[in-house]
Design a protein around this nucleic acid. Structure first.
Lengths: 150, 150
DNA sequence: TATCATTCCTACTATTCAAGTAGGAATAAT
DNA sequence: ATTATTCCTACTTGAATAGTAGGAATGATA
């Protein structure tokens, strides 16, 4: 997995929207998530075009999630910001079996990231802030919190 | 996982050495694995410095594996060529829980790649070639070519 | 209507990193 | 001595990431 700054910014923005209960300005997202102002615009635009968030222009405008946090997986966001990663095909016949391994790696990644939703991340954050603040090295991220609201 | 061309070249080279029973020239590796000649040198040097292969200079020189193929995991090679991937740390407190997820992704990858050895890859290749060629490859247990130098 | 704050859009620059090259020194066999 | 190879540092180049710029479109409010 590559995890570009753009992706992590996008996830931060999505999380910010997930905990808000009304439209949020790009300006506020940029500040709270520490995203360069114009870059934030840029990313939000991409997320909206992908259908993950909605928006309203003008004063009193802002952004909000298109679906509840429990129905948006990390993979949904990452797929948008990372784009279609072109599979590197092996160069020689001897290396051909590697292609299958790359596939397994990718589907393994996809499985994990498809199971974790924005709601899960928020829940895990809340839990860590409750008990141990110093380390943040826990190991529990539940996979189904908040699903099923459609 | 990123999988650079360099990494795939390196794995190809290692596989080439794994099926050989005597030292192999960089030239031959470059040709059979379709690696740009000088780049191949470059990669082999890196693999040698990491202790994965050994070498001998001069005419009659070449490269060979430092350990038998069954004792070299793909992860061993990839760690060398990909270097220490610095974990992208989250930018905002809200995104902090992502760090744990990136860790899980990485250890999941590592688990898979640590289990698969060069010997495994070769075996899987042979299995896939079963219908084309009759067997008799006779290189099931390639081991150290017995050159204690460099 | 005018004003103003916001989203929206295209295109641009800067920086970093992967990919590959170049020139030649060191070594070893003959 | 010659020659074939590995060894080493540094360089070039192309692509991708990160971030910026300028302004048009929209919508609330007065």
């Amino acid at each position: 997995m590559r995890i570009s700054a753009r992706t992590q910014y996008a996830l931060g923005a999505m999380l910010a929207l997930a905990v808000a209960d009304s439209p949020v300005h790009a300006e506020k997202i940029a500040v709270t998530q520490d995203i360069p102002r114009r870059f934030c615009d840029n990313i939000l635009l991409q997320l909206r075009r992908a259908g993950l968030i909605r928006s309203q222009r003008g004063p009193d405008g802002g952004y909000w999630l298109a679906r509840p946090p429990g129905e948006i997986a990390l993979a949904d966001v990452i797929r948008v910001t990372e784009g279609a990663e072109q599979a590197l095909r092996p160069f020689s016949p001897a290396a051909a079996p590697l292609a299958e391994i790359w596939d397994r790696l990718r589907s393994q990644e996809d499985a994990l990231l498809s199971e974790i939703t924005l709601a899960d991340v928020i829940a895990s954050r809340d839990r860590h802030q409750d008990r141990d603040r110093s380390s943040g090295n826990g190991q529990d991220v539940p996979s189904d919190a908040g699903r099923g609201m459609s």
